[in-house]
């Protein structure tokens, strides 16, 4: 047996990340539009990331943070990618990934090892394992920085790339996630 890693957002932050349902619902659609644009911009700048997905770029990936009142459905189809956000339960999709938001963000920027998070049950996956593996490997190789994900460039991008990992690392320590040690 392994000691499970909770990794969920610390108290105050968790309350901030879970506003009343009406606020979440009002925010879901614009957030989806912003994320869709960010992924499409990424596809224009870094098309090689999406080429690793091959046929899996048209699959739908449902990401459900367990400590956030929102879930996400992404179809990573390059410049035609879409991201939808819902404040009401789960989406339907080809692949489902559930886990604390800090763990999921750690997978996105390559800070955390996906297999280790799966072994110790921090994250749960279901659906098309081949599509999930393709996405995981594409993200792994992409070495995404916060500026890539947020679509920032210039000074703002450099600030984000410097600050955001430090903040996330601190939050992970607060959340009791020792896997931060595997940072390359």
């Amino acid at each position: 047996m392994v000691e499970p890693v909770t990794g969920e957002l610390p108290g105050l932050l968790r309350r901030l990340a879970n506003p009343p349902p009406l606020v979440r619902e009002l925010g879901a659609m614009p957030l989806g539009a912003v994320l869709t644009r960010a992924v499409r911009d990424l596809a224009r700048r870094r098309p090689e990331i999406f080429s690793r997905l091959n046929e899996h770029r048209t699959r739908s990936f449902v990401i459900a943070p367990t400590d956030l009142g929102l879930s996400f459905r992404m179809v990573p189809n390059g410049v035609r990618a879409t991201v939808a956000v819902s404040a009401r339960g789960q989406f339907e999709g080809d692949v489902h990934v559930r886990g604390p938001i800090l763990a999921l963000l750690g997978l996105l920027d390559g800070t955390l090892d996906g297999d280790a998070l799966f072994f110790d049950r921090t994250i749960a996956v279901s659906g098309r394992t081949d599509a999930l593996l393709a996405l995981r490997n594409a993200i792994e190789d992409a070495e995404l920085k916060p500026s890539d994900l947020l679509g920032l460039s210039g000074g703002l991008g450099r600030v984000a790339d410097f600050r955001v990992p430090k903040v996330l690392s601190k939050l992970r320590r607060m959340a009791g996630m020792p896997l931060d040690e595997v940072t390359p």
């Binding site: 390559g110 800070t111 090892d113 297999d115 792994e140 070495e143 040690e181 595997v182 940072t183 390359p184």
Partner: peptide
């Protein structure tokens, strides 16, 4: 080879 770069580095 199927593991991520975090694993590889560590």
């Amino acid at each position: 080879r199927q593991r991520g770069k975090g694993y590889v580095a560590e």
